[in-house]
Nucleic acid binder design. Structure first.
Lengths: 360, 360
DNA sequence: CGATCAATTGTATACGTATACCCTGCTAGC
DNA sequence: GCTAGCAGGGTATACGTATACAATTGATCG
């Protein structure tokens, strides 16, 4: 519309030929009076070229403002230096913390990362499959369980030799040979439940995640195990399914509030739901922890500024992210030679003020 | 190490030849007994090929499990279908909401998105410059102001014909010719401040963002304008700088609490800081809003579950994300022909319970 | 001083795709 | 029935880089 009249205005200094639209390795070679092979070597194997030539070439590079065409490089090398991470929800502060670790490690290793969201597992297997093949990436980090089509991933992996590493989630049996790094979710959930029990609670409910999520399955398992071990019964309707969001938790909590035998404590499968849970309880005119105690999971950064501050299980989120990324790198570089054993990182129960002894 | 002994084990059914490591267009052409050009046409211009041939080719594609090599395509076409978005902090729920909109639009348009974080503007200009050239993307969405090196971006843009669109931030003068979509930050901040004034507050402080962030600069400007218009003075030390995080806000709030003339209301440049602010105030044994009123900005999803629920300025975050992505697409497809006028979306003051009339 | 070898640089090719251009064969209009 | 036109499909090439291999240079040693 109006950008094409710049031919009528005097060329603005042109600095150092900085405004070339696209300068290829050829330009550099011509200017430095060497072959393109030499230029390429100067960049990738500087030690294989004379100091004198190297200087000439570096000079030409500077003059032309050349930078290698990443597309061509990726094509030639067969590597994009992009990894994909699949997670349930980008909005969850826990996952953003994990992402921070992943991103830090990725940057250190020279990778970019693209994120795909399973939208809390509402994606169909087809959608996920399409997502996986359409993106050309060097590897995949799975932070979300996708059991329904686990085999699809597996076949894709073996087919394209695509390294996959799993984080946070407990691995499902058919993905057991992939490397993974996560906490011991069962033990952590047991610990959280036991803490409630140790405070004298007997009527303990749980707001868990979707049935499709292995991770929350494990947490539910830990909860049930602790209850059984303490000889406490779990009434029908005490284990309600949230969708890991605040809204979902509020709805789930409503069911708990209306239960004939109302629990005195609630264990939430993540902090996000614990926040919703607390808020819903307050809307009933009840107080936390005086009337009902709450334990969360993840220790997101909002956990300490909620009212009351949340007692929860802390995961080393950033560390998980870093480790999982580094393991993926090793997998990319070393192939299947790299270790594929699961890596368990430590969790910790952090006690704040959302749990009290039961009133009743 | 151990994956090379599969020649000794019997081939596992081989299904439908589904396990080929890398099948190119050539395989398909050979199998369908056509030229590779025809295969390519079948995929990209199906109407230019006979129905019969098309069927043959589609059959071959299915049999081989072929999918085009995205790297080669990108290289050939000179387009990656990847866009980069630069934002201050991936952890901030406001930006994750914007990202949700961006992601949705990107998916609809067939783009992947890589995220770069300016780490709350602690990146150096060099780092940012490196980031921009290293990533081969079709376009950039700027959600963070980077005034110090705005010119660098600008030159990069003109140099590589790289479309850039700005979101959320008010554009700095030297980026004024880029398309942008955002709310009227000044007007919104004025509205927030006026609301406090209308409730009878006169000693109103502000926790703003870093000086380098244009966006919070605008909010501060709006605050000052509203105060001036109401003939209220702003004491030294009433405008404190946070870093848009909870921790930063708590520190900033501490200064406000220790101020000789303690304010009765605080306007925070974002909700994240408002949360920190509230928490810090509580730690002084004071109550919100009885002792001090708080107004936030952004209306993140935690704003309604804080205690008390936060009065704040609501931005249509997801919509901003979508629109900004669509504008980037238009820019990528239509070049500079696409409109570059700023697009102002509406904001809204949402009144909850963090503001009361001043006690004094 | 010449031959051999190492070091350095140039030449040529391949990666997989998209497309400009050409060729073939068919159809339609006279 | 012959030709003009056209549609469908094949051939060849280009994209920018990296590298195997060839060629050339220089140096060292006999």
């Amino acid at each position: 519309m109006k950008q094409d009249l710049n031919d009528t205005v005097p060329q603005q200094e042109a600095a150092e030929a900085e405004d070339m639209p696209d300068v290829s390795i050829k330009e550099v070679a011509r200017l430095a009076d060497v072959s393109i092979a030499t230029v390429s070597r100067c960049i990738n194997n500087p030690e294989k070229v004379t100091a004198k030539t190297r200087l000439k070439v570096q000079d030409a590079i500077r003059q032309t403002g050349y930078s290698p065409n990443t597309l061509a490089q990726s094509f030639r090398r067969g590597r994009t230096n992009i990894v994909m991470v699949v997670l349930p929800s980008v909005g969850d502060p826990f996952f953003t913390a994990v992402m921070r670790g992943i991103r830090a490690a990725a940057k250190a290793k020279g990778y970019s990362v693209v994120i795909e969201e399973t939208q809390l597992n509402t994606m169909t297997a087809d959608e996920i499959g399409a997502m996986l093949v359409s993106n050309q990436t060097d590897g995949i980090i799975l932070l979300a369980s996708m059991s329904p089509f686990g085999t699809e991933v597996l076949s894709a992996k073996s087919k394209r030799r695509l390294p996959i590493v799993i984080g946070c989630e407990t691995v499902s049996p058919d993905l057991a040979d992939f490397p993974s790094v996560h906490i011991d979710n069962i033990a952590a959930a047991k610990e959280a439940t036991n803490y409630l029990i140790s405070q004298g609670h007997q009527r303990i409910a749980m707001v868990c995640g979707q049935a499709s999520s292995l991770l929350t399955k494990d947490r539910e398992f830990g909860y049930r195990a602790a209850m059984k071990q303490a000889d406490l019964s779990i009434e029908d309707g005490w284990v309600v399914e949230g969708d890991l969001t605040i809204a979902g938790a509020r709805k789930a909590t409503r069911n708990l509030m209306n239960h004939g035998n109302r629990p005195t404590a609630i264990f939430c499968a993540n902090d996000e739901m614990a926040i919703g849970c607390i808020h819903e309880i307050k809307s009933y005119g009840l107080r936390v922890p005086r009337d009902i105690s709450i334990v969360g999971f993840d220790d997101i950064r909002y956990a300490e500024v909620t009212d009351p501050p949340l007692t929860t299980i802390s995961q080393p989120a950033e560390e998980i992210g870093e480790r999982v990324m580094y393991r993926l790198c090793r997998r990319i570089e070393a192939g299947n030679g790299a270790s594929s054993s699961p890596e368990i990182v430590p969790h910790k129960l952090v006690i704040r003020q959302s749990v009290a002894k039961p009133a009743s």
